[in-house]
Amino acid sequence: MKSSVIIFPGSNCDRDMDVALKKFGFKNQMIWHNDNSIPKSDLIVLPGGFSYGDYLRCGSIASKSKIIKSVIDFANSGGLVLGICNGFQILTETGLLPGILQQNKYLNFICRNVFVKVKDKQNKYFKDIKKNILELHIAHNEGNYFCSNDEMKSLEDNNQIAVTYCNKNGDESNENNPNGAIKNIAGIFNNKKNVLGMMPHPERMIDKYLSGEDGSLFFENLLRNLN
């Protein structure tokens, strides 16, 4: 399986993602934002970071970069596009995903492990994943997901909510919502479920000695579903 990670000025999780994808068997290539096209890929990843210094709104400048047209065409033809953290913000700014990531409710940059509940398994990312609750890492200042009432209704009606913040037992009450995201949303799909944006970083949880291995489950599962 071939993957492509897009690098924007200010991306800083691109190499972590490269390491993770290669560890689980993807043939990964790094693509510069100013390129015109993306080589044949089974998966495109928009990595975390602070593209363009978060100027204007997080992800807004990157969403107009030269390579994005190819990403949108790839997504519209059914290709898998995964946006992590800043990548999620970029996906909302391109319009591939609804809503927006606002500043965290309590104005603090949050950097810690969280638990998320997998809400939908009828998709290539989470189909047959062994656990329902994953421990992953978040590091963001703008992760407070917000969308209009109509967009929320459509997300719920089509089971497009991918993962929600919870505690280790799966409790999704307010105290387990780190950033004020509406309905504890940590990640969503587009309506065809080939595009996934999420704030947590699976690429940071791929080594049992350094962090945890729930990210490994995510990548192993994704690769299995792509084969």
Partner: peptide
């Protein structure tokens, strides 16, 4: 197209 995000 750019300066404002009309969602919010």
């Amino acid at each position: 197209k750019l300066l404002a995000n009309l969602v919010i």
